[in-house]
């Protein structure tokens, strides 16, 4: 297999990892804020705090890892994406900064502040919206080359129905992923009240997620017929993803096997995400940049892969330890030490 494909697959996998764990994080922030409004904070606060505290920094690293890896394996992406994404990504950074730091301030320092909880919740929904612009731009049609320099067409981007479909999908799926995970987490914690409430949220957001995904396929057809056909060629991957969606919802309805429900959700999103990624092949930014002309030199590619393997030999046991101590430790989850 080409090194280019290995590179982009690994990065895509990392982006997927970020999307799942960040969704849990962002959605939890929103549910926290919402629980303040609906006076259900006492039900949700504990379970959310319990999960988020030891992992918030790790979540952030996944994002850093993705973009550093991207620039490393595909230096030209720094040029194309860096030039055009200044404004949307800067807004994303500011939101992430406010959210991340205030999470620490709140948890370890200051007293509860309603204003802060509200900001925290809203920022969590705006971050996926601002970052999902990257995916929209990659579809082509929003970047022009003027005087040899790529330029973002703000107006076209802002008024495109495709942009808004992707933004909506990112927001509803954040809520769906998060609620499903937290339901399973509350189930392990034997926190019935939290579980029942979160289960309701999960079911409520499952419909909009499926709808928004369908909407994007329709938009894609109007926006770029060639990309649409690529997606259609991979129809079976998306169909399989749909099957796992049904399994998750069915398990949630049956009120059992919550962990299985969550893993089925992960598979559902993985299939859709990789299907989408494959349909993009070979473009990094349609139609200017492919993974082949953007790839780094051979010496660097080899060095990066070696570093990658060595790094993972170190990271995987550490992540495993973290998961065992906090995520899959029943005593901890239930509120013990």
């Amino acid at each position: 297999m080409d090194l280019e494909i290995i590179g982009i697959s690994v990065l895509w996998l990392f982006l997927f990892g970020y999307i799942i764990i960040a969704s849990i994080d962002f959605g939890a922030g929103f549910f926290s804020a919402y629980s303040e409004l609906t006076k259900t904070r006492h039900i949700l606060h504990h379970i959310i705090q319990r999960y988020l505290s030891p992992v918030w920094e790790v979540t952030n690293v996944f994002l850093v890892f993705f973009f550093v890896g991207m620039v490393g394996f595909f230096p030209s992406s720094a040029y194309y994406y860096g030039t055009v994404l200044l404004v949307p990504v800067s807004i994303g950074i500011v939101l992430i900064a406010i959210r991340g730091s205030y999470y620490a301030f709140q948890t370890y320092g200051a007293k509860d502040s309603k204003l802060y909880i509200f900001l925290y919740g809203v920022a969590g929904l705006l971050i996926p919206a601002s970052l999902s612009i990257v995916l929209t731009v990659s579809e082509g049609g929003f970047v022009d080359i003027v005087n040899d320099q790529p330029v973002l067409l703000y107006e076209e981007l802002f008024f495109s129905p495709l942009t808004w479909s992707i933004v909506i999908l990112s927001i509803v799926s954040v809520l769906y992923i998060s609620a499903t995970f937290l339901t399973a987490y509350a189930d392990v914690a034997k926190d019935e009240a939290a579980k029942n409430l979160l289960r309701k949220y999960a079911l409520a957001w499952s419909g909009p997620t499926a709808l928004a995904a369908g909407l994007i396929v329709l938009q894609m057809r109007a926006h770029n017929i060639e990309r649409f056909e690529n997606i259609m060629d991979l129809w079976w991957i998306f169909a399989l993803s749909g099957v796992f969606f049904v399994i998750t919802v069915a398990l949630l309805l049956m009120r059992k096997y919550y962990s299985t429900a969550f893993w089925s959700l992960v598979i559902q999103f993985a299939l859709a995400f990789f299907g989408y990624g494959i349909s993009h092949y070979p473009y990094l930014m349609y139609p200017y940049l492919t993974i082949y002309d953007g790839f780094t030199n051979e010496a660097m590619a080899t060095a990066l892969i070696v570093a990658f393997i060595a790094g993972f030999a170190l990271l995987i046991p550490s992540l495993f330890l973290l998961a065992r101590l906090f995520l899959f430790n029943k005593k901890y989850v239930k509120g013990g030490k």
Partner: peptide, 20 residues
């Protein structure tokens, strides 16, 4: 890109153990 990449590994490592 190599040291930049290795930096994120170091950062990752630190983040995990700081949480623990």
């Amino acid at each position: 890109a190599l040291p930049l990449f290795m930096e994120t590994f170091a950062f990752f490592f630190e983040a995990i153990f700081l949480g623990i």
